[in-house]
Structures are given as C-alpha cells and as structure tokens.
Design a protein around this nucleic acid. Structure first.
Lengths: 152, 152
DNA sequence: CGACTTTACGGGTATCGTAAACATC
DNA sequence: GATGTTTACGATACCCGTAAAGTCG
C-alpha cells in the first residue's frame, strides 16, 4: 500500500473533488483517479462514490478516512522528529549573486531557508560583474548567461 | 512511501535481523535490504546500523519506529473496521474431505475460520472413498492424488 | 567457515502523463 | 457546453527474485 494514495484520499475527501485534490497535490486527475481505485482494490471496498459533479465518502470510506489520517499524521510526525534531530545548520555562509537574480528570486528562498536554520548567518555579496568573483572569497557564486571566459 | 517497507522496518527491529524479518514476511533477504534502503533514502536518515552478525536501531530509527508502528496500527485498525462492516458470512456450508486431510490440515483452518464467522455452521462429511461424493450433496469437496476417473 | 547483508542484473509489473472518451449537472 | 471522472496507451521507472560478491564473528 502506498501512502501517496492515502494522501489522495484525504485531499479528495477534503476538497470534494478528485480534480481539486490533484491540483493541490500537483498530479493529474487521471493519477488521482487510479490512486483511489488502487486503494479501493487493495481494501476490497468502495471508499468514494463519484459522479462528475459531486464526490462523497461511502460510510466505509468515512470510517477508513479517520485511520488513514492518523497514519499519515504519525508518519509526518516521525519525519518531523527526524529532521528535528538532524544537526542544525549553523555558521556563516557567503554567497555572491547578480543583483537582479537576488532581488527577484533568491530573496524569498533565502528568507525561508534562514527561518529554517536560525543558527545560520548569510553574507551576501551582490555584484553584476563576474570579475568580482575573484576579489572576495565566497563559498557559493551564482551567475547566469553565457560565460565570456571558458576558463571557468 | 510504501507501507510494506515500514513493515520490514518493524519486523527487522523486532527480530534483530533482516533475514529473520524476511523469513517472517515471506520475502527474500535482498528485498528486505532494499526496502530498508528505500526507507532510509526517502527519509534521508540511516535507521538501522547493520553488520553481518548484529542489527540495531540508530537513535533516529528508534524514534521513527514508534511512529511507523502507530501508522501501521492505524491502517490495520481501519482495515479491520472495514471488514467488520462487511456482511457477515452466515448459514450452513457442507464440505467433504478425506479423513487424513481433515485431521492433519483442515481442522486448524476451520477452527480459525469459524471463529471469524460465528454465524456460520459447517457440516463436515469425512470419507475416503470418492464415490461418496455423489451420495451426499456437498458444496465443497476436497480430494487429492491422481483421479481414477477422468470424467471428473 | 557459516550466516548475514549488499549489489548486480534481467524480467516483469506498475505507474506516470497525455489524450481521448464518457458522464453529469 | 463545461467541468469532472475514467480508460487507453506508450514510455519510463520501479520492484522482485536469482545469483554472486562482500562482510563480520
């Protein structure tokens, strides 16, 4: 049995639609459909009665949903605990990036990354000239486009 | 993630050996090994430290095992509830079997089967002659060996 | 040496997304 | 007719068992 299928069941019951669940889970409606079918075949019981315009749990499905949720919650909790145990990322990291890339893309990512790792300090060097890469010692340097000097 | 893999983890932790777990689960040691590897890869954490003669949980594995067990328990409970809802098997079933087969094999099975379905009454006809099959109307008849009359 | 774990590999199955068909309001 | 569900299908990926290699006591 696959936990992904259980997840589809939970989302489908929550959103009242396979397509909506599929959108949430970033899968196609087709695979959501077969996921439910797989579950039902494995359990030998119909869990959802589905028409094109409505979707509702069968009595059996309603009962099973409770247990599926607790199972998924237990696994998520276990996983969270694992990550909590994992060595904290700490110290200082210096990175170099072009100004536009930093402004448009990286800022949001870095915000979230630092929220996950409060012990981490970032030293950002924003510069648009590649030559700056050699001036300052950085640990990660990001550039994009066609490199002018293939020696890199 | 696969629940079968979680099951391998539970059995391996319980028996202290991948091979022992594999025997219990009727799989080969090789698939037990890759099951654990799959789990560890999915979680990004080593769960079991294994040498050829010993197997023990890592601290992370010990913590995760608890949640894996509750997840499996929840799913088993949900499945049991589904079967409980299912229509009870009731009524009378008559079967015919050779005396030795009944004594050696079937008795234990039938005991358990009747314990699962208290509404069911069994009518056993034990006889070693195949000709008896036609005398009494039975719904299931068991014989083994080479049939003397290919008309059956 | 013996028992256990792991890796390599081939065959078979499963699963995915696309696309089309089908159903329902 | 528009949205949602299901099926068909081809390509890929996954998973199993066998077998061999590696490992530890």
């Amino acid at each position: 049995m696959r936990t992904d299928d259980l997840n589809v069941l939970v989302y489908a019951a929550e959103h009242g639609s396979l397509s909506a669940a599929a959108r949430e889970l970033a899968i196609t409606p087709a695979v959501a459909s077969v996921a439910i079918k797989r579950l039902e075949d494995a359990l030998g019981t119909r869990l959802l009665v589905r028409s094109t315009r409505s979707l509702r749990l069968t009595p059996a499905g309603a009962h099973y949903l409770v247990h599926a949720k607790t199972a998924l919650r237990a696994l998520a909790e276990g996983e969270k605990e694992l990550h909590r145990e994992r060595q904290e990322i700490a110290g200082e990291l210096s990175l170099s990036m072009p100004s536009d890339l930093g402004r448009n893309v990286l800022l949001g990512w870095l915000d979230r990354f630092m929220a996950l790792h409060p012990q981490l300090r970032l030293r950002l060097r924003v510069s648009d000239r590649v030559s700056d890469l050699f001036r300052q010692p950085v640990e990660i340097a990001l550039r994009y486009g066609v490199p002018e000097d293939s020696a890199w």
